[in-house]
């Protein structure tokens, strides 16, 4: 809590509870930022599970940048991978009486009680990506149709392989719904094509080093491989390193998901990675939705966004090779949707 230690005690007491509430957040943004559409002075709370991946970081950046644009104050919390911490984070945001909460969670089941608390307080709740459990309410949910995207991926494989080929699958962490969908949707399509064969599976927990090791084994075990289907960009890059070191890049193509790190976009541009299905972090869209709700605009409850395939053909829409940075994707949120 950034309470200034030089504020003398009597003064602080005089300021009273209301002012203390203001001190808790970063009070200067709202005063000096350009106030758009009467949102100045409003505060949004943002609760995340764990900021350690490029994707989650891109989400946080999206929220912070967009909130600045609107002149909204933002209180950012991070549960540090502990469901109990995310519960207290949400309860703290309720205590601070924020005007809206944006939530991104890996533990929809565990945090349900805290979500109910938010519901009871009547605070608008915008949910990013992973859906909540039945029995709790939310105002807006912005999500990617992961299953449909994985089916698109299946179609892409069938077409690209011409209905015949040997494929390695590299999986993320078990237990993650997104990981399961990326497997199920893809399998549901390619399993109908008898001559497309998944000849090996590696569980690499979204970890680049594990994907590298696993892919080395696969290259050793299989004389010919046509493609490598990975469930994330980090694992795609791990697999790519193994394939390059074995000098077998011409033999196969590699795909992944996410498309938020500049590195993978560079690899796509150079043609070493076939492509990735973009997985929007929705930070920007989340704040757009919150702003719409706070202005009293009509919003839908559920928005499902498709995942475009980033390949060599369109990579420059997502990547700026001159700066070596990913382009901030423009918001796809339309209240009427």
């Amino acid at each position: 809590m950034p309470i200034n230690s030089h504020v003398d005690r009597r003064k602080l007491l005089k300021l009273g509870a209301a002012a203390a509430g203001g001190v808790l957040a970063t009070p200067f943004i709202s005063k000096f930022a350009s106030a758009q559409g009467g949102l100045a002075g409003k505060t949004i709370g943002f609760s995340q599970s764990y900021v350690t991946t490029n994707w989650i970081k891109a989400q946080r950046e999206g929220v912070i940048q967009t909130a600045k644009k609107y002149g909204l104050e933002t209180i950012v919390t991070d549960a540090n991978h502990q469901p109990t911490k995310q519960i207290t984070d949400l309860e703290d945001l309720v205590t601070r009486r924020v005007d809206a909460i944006i939530l991104s969670t890996y533990y929809s089941e565990a945090i349900s009680p805290a979500v109910r608390h938010v519901n009871e307080a009547g605070i608008p709740l915008i949910v990013l990506s992973s859906a909540l459990q039945p029995g709790v309410d939310y105002t807006v949910h912005l999500g990617t149709d992961t299953l449909a995207t994985a089916k698109d991926a299946g179609d892409y494989y069938v077409k690209k392989l011409n209905g015949k080929g040997k494929v390695i699958q590299i999986l993320g962490s078990p237990g993650s719904t997104v990981n399961q969908h990326r497997g199920e949707g893809w399998h549901s399509v390619i399993d109908k094509v008898p001559e497309i064969e998944v000849i090996g599976q590696v569980q690499a927990d979204y970890d680049r080093a594990k994907a590298l090791r696993g892919m080395e084994d696969m290259l050793q075990a299989h004389g010919h491989i046509d493609a490598v289907y990975t469930h994330s960009e980090d694992m795609a890059m791990g697999a790519l390193q193994a394939v390059k070191e074995a000098g077998r890049l011409d033999e196969m193509f590699i795909t992944g998901y996410d498309g938020v790190s500049p590195e993978i976009l560079q690899d796509i541009m150079e043609g070493e990675i076939e492509g990735v299905w973009y997985y929007a972090p929705f930070g920007t869209e989340g704040v757009d939705a919150a702003a719409a709700v706070l202005r009293g605009e009509a919003v839908k409850k559920d928005y499902k966004f498709p995942s475009p395939f980033i390949s060599k053909a369109n990579v420059l829409d997502y990547y700026d090779p001159d700066t070596g940075k990913a382009k901030v994707a423009s918001s796809r949120f339309q209240p009427g949707g």
């Binding site: 078990p174 569980q203 696993g214 084994d217 050793q220 075990a221």
Partner: peptide, 16 residues
């Protein structure tokens, strides 16, 4: 052990 299980194609969950 991990290498052999990978080479003979034992599923990752079974490996654990």
């Amino acid at each position: 052990l991990a290498n052999i299980l990978n080479l003979v194609g034992v599923s990752p969950y079974m490996q654990m």
